[in-house]
Design a protein around this nucleic acid. Structure first.
Length: 270
DNA sequence: CTAGTTCCCTGGCCGC
DNA sequence: TGCGGCCAGGGAACTA
């Protein structure tokens, strides 16, 4: 699933292909992919030119002449850029036809992703983006500590809370806990101020590094379109053996989410 | 206010 | 081989 680094890679890749293109027609093949009124979405954006693509947390924001819309890829959302003549595949739910004959298509096997028209001037302060916390590099250790130092929720669950910090999903939450040498089920209140500061540093480092690695694919597509997925060196997620002690990695559910950790290296304490 | 639950979807997997 | 059942998973909406 795309998390902040993958979404950032999609943003950069997409910018190379669609900035300056004028939308001449929008076709919605699956109505529920649009939050809000589909007709308003189509009529507001038709005739507009794409000027920029922004990102906040895992959201992409497409900026046009006088309009803007947000796109959340959720689990399997991706973008394809194809010739308009190419037959629609069964998971392409939305098509933006450009005046040059190319087409941007939103594809999503599980139909979990959503697009929504937003106010171009105020979207950062409106729902749903206003609910997002800072990205790790903007996070204030004091503020984060204040929010979690009484919480019984597992640290991994807190990492997934987008209102605390934005951009971290299941994969990177596992990786961050591993790098912190902390058991994912450790209650938030067990972390000292120092450990919270470290948590922010590690989160920043892991996401930044992943973006850098994604940078190598920026000018290309993979076979499945622009997904932002690339070879990230994962240390625990989906791994069989610990890269540090070589012991077996444990997989268990933490608050309903598949969680990988090394029982030897990751202890249940701050 | 915080925490817990349900729902959205479909491909892939399991068991028979 | 085919089919039914189950399940992951981000975030919104809802309930306790």
């Amino acid at each position: 699933m795309p998390e902040l680094p993958e979404v950032e890679t999609v943003r950069r890749t997409l910018k190379n292909f669609i900035i300056g293109k004028e939308i001449t027609k929008i076709t919605v093949h699956y109505d529920n992919i649009i939050t809000g009124d589909t007709n308003a979405f189509v009529t507001s954006l038709t005739g507009q030119t794409i000027r920029d693509i922004d990102r906040v947390g895992k959201y992409l924001i497409f900026i046009l002449d006088t309009q803007a819309f947000i796109s959340h890829l959720r689990m399997e959302g991706k973008y394809n850029i194809v010739a308009a003549s190419k037959p629609l595949n069964k998971h392409e739910h939305l098509s933006f036809l450009f005046s040059d004959g190319s087409e941007l298509r939103y594809q999503d096997t599980r139909k979990f992703g959503r697009l929504e028209l937003v106010n171009k001037e105020t979207y950062r302060h409106d729902l749903p983006l206003c609910k997002l916390g800072p990205e790790p590099w903007d996070a204030d250790p004091q503020a984060i500590y204040r929010k979690i130092h009484k919480s019984n929720l597992p640290i991994k669950t807190l990492l997934l809370d987008q209102s605390l910090m934005a951009g971290i999903g299941n994969i990177y939450a596992n990786e961050i806990c591993f790098r912190m040498k902390i058991h994912p089920a450790t209650p938030g209140k067990r972390l000292s101020k120092k450990r919270v500061a470290e948590l922010i540093d590690v989160s920043t480092e892991i996401l930044t590094q992943a973006i850098t690695q994604g940078g190598t694919t920026i000018h290309s597509f993979d076979a499945n379109g622009i997904t932002g997925l690339f070879q990230v060196q994962l240390q625990v997620h989906l791994q069989k053996n610990c890269s540090v002690c070589n012991g077996a990695i444990t997989k268990e559910m933490v608050r309903g989410r598949g969680t990988y950790y090394c029982p030897t290296c990751q202890k249940k304490q701050g």
